[in-house]
């Protein structure tokens, strides 16, 4: 039995220790906002936070979770009030939306350390893949959320 905090709550799971955290949060804990994309830590759809830092959960064994605080998209805020969530809505960022929870979690990790990120900082942080090509709107939303308003991308 493994025990760790997810979105502020202590959770216990009985799974094989090598199970990727992605599948534990989705299947054991029912937090399906975190998505499976590539399974090789490349696309970023599965990004969540471990102690506030972004982690590709498809490549993070659940055995490494005890002792750490996990935050999924469901825990970013409980009422869609996070500045990035509000900006994402204002800028109408998502198209199909599949990659957007990972995008938001990466963006949240970025602005936590860089409250006013430059274009270059956004480029090197936001490497999540989006087949709808929402990248310009992602940038606009990050700028909006960090008080660096710019026109819609």
């Amino acid at each position: 039995m493994l025990e760790f905090k997810v979105n502020g709550q202590l959770r216990r799971v009985d799974v094989h220790p090598d199970t990727p955290l992605l599948w534990v949060v989705r299947e054991q804990l029912g937090l399906t906002g975190t998505k499976f994309g590539c399974g090789i830590a490349r696309c970023g759809a599965c990004t969540l936070h471990v102690d506030g830092s972004p982690v590709r959960s498809c490549s993070f064994p659940v055995s490494a979770a005890p002792g750490h605080e996990i935050t999924t998209i469901e825990g970013l805020s409980n009422d869609v009030s996070h500045p990035l969530q509000r900006a994402w809505i204002a800028e109408q960022v998502p198209q199909c939306g599949y990659c957007q929870s990972g995008m938001l979690m990466t963006a949240a990790a970025l602005v936590r350390l860089r409250p006013k990120p430059t274009d270059e900082e956004i480029d090197f942080a936001m490497t999540n893949l989006c087949r709808c090509g929402t990248y310009p709107r992602v940038r606009s939303a990050i700028k909006r959320a960090t008080g660096q308003a710019e026109g819609r991308g």
Binding site: P54, V55, C58, S59, T106, T127
Partner: peptide, 21 residues
Amino acid sequence: GVPGQMCSTCHQTENNESSGV
């Protein structure tokens, strides 16, 4: 690494067999 994309975003303390990272 850089904020938003640290080495630890993908690389953990052991080789990951399922992802190959």
